[in-house]
Amino acid sequence: AEDTGVRVELAEEDDGRKSSIALRLWVEDAKKLKGKSKDNGAIEFTFELEKETPDDVAQEMVDAGFFHESDVKIIAKSIRDRVALIQWRRERIWPMLH
């Protein structure tokens, strides 16, 4: 995935079954953001794989004051890349293990 300067990782181990996953997001390289972000630390949140879109969550983070409006796309992309990887793992890895 492209280096967006924003890191998104699983906040808990994925059991491959739950419809919601816990993710943790933090800024690794603030220079890649257009707006100034506060020193937020790591933001943990749950993401509903089938109901939500990364764009919704990114917008909520902007609304909550974590990020500037101009960075909503880079936040959404960072979440989208991680979610895509998790879904890829679920489709490819889990069937092989079970």
Binding site: R7, W26, E28, D29, N40, G41, A42, I43, E44, F45, T46, V57, E60, M61, D63, A64, F66
Partner: peptide, 27 residues
């Protein structure tokens, strides 16, 4: 812990905690 902050927005709960030093990229 005392460094953890909970922010509610649009029905979602964000839990904010410090990033462990080891997870920060070397600049």
């Amino acid at each position: 812990n005392s460094f953890t902050q909970v922010v509610h927005s649009a029905g979602r709960r964000f839990i904010v905690s410090p990033v462990p030093e080891s997870r920060l990229r070397e600049q």
